[in-house]
Amino acid sequence: MSAKAKTDPMVPELMSISVRRKELADTFTIELDPGKAGFEFLPGQFNMLYAFGVGEVPISISGDPAEPESLVHTIRDVGAVTNALSKMKKGDQVGVRGPFGSCWPVGEAEGSDVVIVAGGIGLAPLRPAIDHILTNRSKYGRFVILYGARSPEDILYMNQLQKWRGRLDTYVDVTVDHAGRDWAGNVGVVTRLIGRANFDPRHTKVMICGPEIMMRFTIKELNQIGVSKEDIYVSMERNMKCAIGHCGHCQFGGHFVCKDGPVFSYARIESLLQVRGL
C-alpha cells in the first residue's frame, strides 16, 4: 500500500471547503473538494493544512479511504491555525499538502483480531482504519472498538459509534471519565474496557491513538494480558512542520514523526517512550 503527495510536497494545493460541521464545543470537521482526480490516502496518514496568512498545521485524515472524492479532517481548535480553520465557511479555500506519513497496519492485521483503542479526538485518525476494516470485514477476526472521552458531551462521532455498535460483527464499548445520572453508559478509564472485550491477545493487532499518557496506560494493560509489543501500534504526535523529514522539528529519537510515523509499532519506539522529556 502506498499513497504519496502527488506534486512538489512543499507546494500546497488549493481546495475548497464543501462541508463544515460542528462535532463538539471545540471540535469541527471540514470536508474538502479535491476535484475530479480525488485524493488517495492510507488510513493513519496526515495532511498539512494551510490557513492563508496564519500558518500551517498537521491534521490526520479522518474520512473513508474508499471515498477519495471527499477529503475529511476533524480538527480541534487549540491554536492560531486551527482557530483560523474553525472560522472558515463552505466555499473558503485551504492549502493542502499531503498525504504524508506511515499508516495503520490494516493489511498485516488481516486474519487477526483487531482492537482499536481511542481516546478523545484520537478517534479521528483511527476512523479511516475502522472504515477500511468494516468495508473488508470478512478478512478480519473479532473486531473491537474501545473509546474513552472526558464526559458524555465530549464523545466524538456519537452517531457513528452507535451505528458501529449496531452491527452484529463489531464490539463497541465506550466510557467517560465522569458523568451525571443522565448517562447510562460506562464511567471509568478506557483501560478498564480491555479486560472484558474478549479478544485473543496472541492473535490481535491493536491500534491506539489518543493522548500519550493514555496510550502508555493502555499499552501497560495490553502487555499484562499477553499482547506482544510487535502487535501494538500507536500514532505519535509531534511538532511537524515540513512533513518530509527535512526540518527536524518532529524528531523523536532517531525518527522523524512526519516521515517514519506518525504510526509506529510500539516495539520500535518502546525505549523512546521511556525517555522523559523527549
Binding site: 466510557t175 465522569h178 458523568a179 451525571g180 445520572r181 443522565d182 448517562w183 453508559g185 460506562n186 464511567v187 471509568g188 472484558r196
Partner: peptide
C-alpha cells in the same frame, strides 16, 4: 452499578461503573 458522589441539590456524580465480575 454506578458509584456516585452525592452532591447537595443535584443528581449524583458518577465516578465509576462496575460490571460482571
Amino acid at each position: 452499578v454506578a458509584l456516585e458522589f452525592h452532591t447537595p441539590g443535584q443528581d449524583g456524580l458518577i465516578i465509576e461503573t462496575l460490571h460482571d465480575g
